[in-house]
Design a protein around this nucleic acid. Structure first.
Lengths: 213, 213
DNA sequence: TAAATAAATGACTTTTGAGTCATTAATTTA
DNA sequence: TAAATTAATGACTCAAAAGTCATTTATTTA
């Protein structure tokens, strides 16, 4: 992320925006929106502050742009995984949760929910975009999975929309937690939290006494 | 909260601190730490900005003091409820969740988790205090309930600490949600979310096939 | 009741960081 | 290769809000 200061005046029109967004992601996630300084982002991206304004209108614009750029691709990946899958839904759910954590859990990307939630009141347009394009879309995906599970007889008759909210909340909670208070708490295994939670959840919505997980 | 401007120079040494904290709670919860102006808090509390500095060292100090003052009493209430209770733990859990939402859900207090999470990186001492004095203490309370349920034969043999984390997360998530993105999403019933979640959770950890909820 | 004390005020100072722009130099075009 | 273009720079400006303090006035004390 930190570019070598080797040649200061190098022109790199194409690469700059994504490099700036990478740097912004790091800094915004670490300090929150208000406490992030454009000078820091610029330094991390290997440009001067002035250059930021060639590519983004303002700090707020950079923030919004970053969230959009970073989050949409992740969602698209998840969608294609679900669409391509055939088999027991319980198994799909379990593997998605663990895989999601294995990949995203390491990344700065999982700091995004914390950021959006923190700044929702100050960036209503961003919040609206996020709810419409990320949350509703993600919830629809999960609700679809649950519907498939109900139809196949794996799950009992429950409201798929609420069940989706319930299933998503601990995953989002885990990423918020990881990016905020986890370092002040006892060492503990977020992956185990997610696995155990999924197991309890699946047991809770299963039609039969025992689930095969 | 907003004091009448009736008599500007009125001296109210005793009442000021709690009035300022009430105002601070409102403003901080609504805008987040950085975007909150001391002038606004002062106006809401019916004092001048200068007066804030008679009672609090700085904006940061006011913020920390507010979190501590507001959160501890709530925790104490919950503890005495649990200690006084006798009967099925599942029933206690259900009634605590719904009651908690009925009282706290209306209050500004449920904006505190969002605030602490947002500012954890900028206020490490506050984060540490919060984890130790609120989160761990609350988790201990819940883990104790679950242990009682395991011993009484209501619940199967699970790790009470992780089970507590799992039980708490949707409740915290609900308050974060309510204070951030809920207004941008479709109208939906957070209470129903919590009740359904609790039901699934209890079914997921119950020893018997059917729970009596 | 007069003097001493300290709560309350708000205009002022200071700091901080977003945003600007004249300048520099790489790249493109003629 | 010279001229035109535009990416890149960073010192500067400016606004906003935290924090200060001399002044005002309520309350307490002698």
């Amino acid at each position: 992320m930190v570019k070598e200061q080797a040649h200061r005046w190098q022109r790199r029109k194409e690469e700059r925006p994504s490099e700036i967004i990478d740097a912004a992601l790091e800094v915004f996630v670490e300090h929150g929106y208000a406490a992030s300084k454009l000078d820091d982002i610029a330094r991390k991206a290997g440009v001067s502050k002035g250059s930021l304004y060639r590519y983004f209108d303002s700090k707020a614009d950079l923030f919004k742009e970053m969230v959009m750029q970073v989050v949409i691709p992740e969602l698209e990946k998840a969608e294609s995984t679900v669409n391509d899958y055939q088999g027991a839904i319980a198994t799909l759910i379990t593997s998605m949760v663990t895989n999601w954590w294995k990949t995203m859990g390491e990344t700065r990307v999982c700091g995004i929910p914390k950021l959006v939630i923190s700044e929702a009141a100050n960036f209503p347009e961003l919040a609206e975009f996020y709810v419409d394009s990320v949350i509703k879309r993600g919830r629809k995906l999960v609700a679809g999975m649950i519907k498939r599970g109900i139809e196949s007889g794996e799950f009992r008759e429950i409201d798929p929309d609420y069940a989706a909210r319930i299933m998503i909340s601990p995953v989002v909670f885990a990423s918020i937690w990881k990016e905020s208070l986890s370092s002040f708490d006892d060492e503990y295994d977020i992956n185990h939290f997610l696995v155990m939670n999924t197991e309890i959840f699946l047991r809770g919505i299963s039609r039969n006494r025992e689930t095969d997980i």
